[in-house]
Design a binder for these strands. Structure first.
Lengths: 151, 151
DNA sequence: ATTGCTGCAAAACGTTTGCACCTAT
DNA sequence: ATAGGTGCAAACGTTTTGCAGCAAT
């Protein structure tokens, strides 16, 4: 599914740098926004290949990087060695709780977290840039848990 | 340098599982506690090899895993694809600010963070296990920054 | 005696890179 | 025309694994 508003943001971002506007880049944008949840670059590559795309792995990796620079996607690290992305287009800031039993990822937005990163940065004489806050926990109701995986 | 108190904790932990007590494991413990800061498994392997140890990479990786299970070390992920460890023996809980310019890691312990992970877990009907909170920022005084690397 | 641990090398994994060809500008 | 992008395969850096011999129990 295409999203013309996101495409316009990406187009402007590409023009602003010396980046070219190519069909492949928009193909990756569309696939990424279609994905519901958190995905690794390789996941998206496989999905696109299965949908008969002629895209290359290299293009997917590079384009996801571009999309996170223009803040259409955000990059996440959940403690394994995979870089994950999720759409940040029209989404509020949030953090993640990861179930250590099944890998399920629960998003939360807690007011108390909001100002902390910038406050603490200031206190240490740094200019705040970004942060990552992950909680690892076990679901109290295992039945909610066992049959679901978002890895 | 050897630390007999930490060795005793490790020894008990090993006995409690069906793990054997071997000289190699204590060699890794000693090297890890000697390291001042955050290190990757391979860093420690190289250091030990340079000190003429006969240890193998596999043993270092596996032993660090054991040491983090018995909480003598804690495992950290700073957003690159390296698993880092640091001593948690007799150290207070803390979080990290990483300078995006030079990679310097500053530790901080902020009271406001303390109860958050367990509180939020409860609120979402999970049993809290662990958390990770990293801030990425830029040093306001670049001179403090440029000449230092802790990667 | 048994079972787990070791060192080694090879494999695995996600990711990046070099390159020849192609395409947006 | 030219700088930059693409697809492919090979290389990369970190971590894991298979295995034969070894050592703790």
């Amino acid at each position: 599914m295409r999203n013309s508003q996101a495409e316009e943001i990406f187009r402007s971002f590409l023009k602003a740098g010396k980046n070219r506007i190519t069909p492949e880049r928009f193909e990756v944008l569309d696939a990424a926004l279609d994905y519901d949840g958190h995905f690794g670059a390789d996941d998206l590559y496989i999905i696109m290949k299965n949908a008969n795309s002629r895209i290359s792995r290299a293009t997917v990796y590079k384009t996801l990087e571009l999309l996170s620079h223009c803040e259409l996607l955000s990059k996440r690290h959940f403690g394994d060695h995979i870089t994950r992305y999720e759409s940040s287009f029209k989404r509020q800031v949030h953090d993640h709780l990861i179930c250590v039993d099944c890998g399920r990822i629960v998003e939360f937005a807690d007011q108390r977290v909001k100002k902390l990163p910038a406050d603490i940065s200031e206190g240490l004489d740094f200019n705040f840039e970004s942060y990552s806050f992950n909680i690892f926990a076990r679901c109290k109701e295992p039945k909610k848990c066992k049959h679901f995986r978002d890895k």
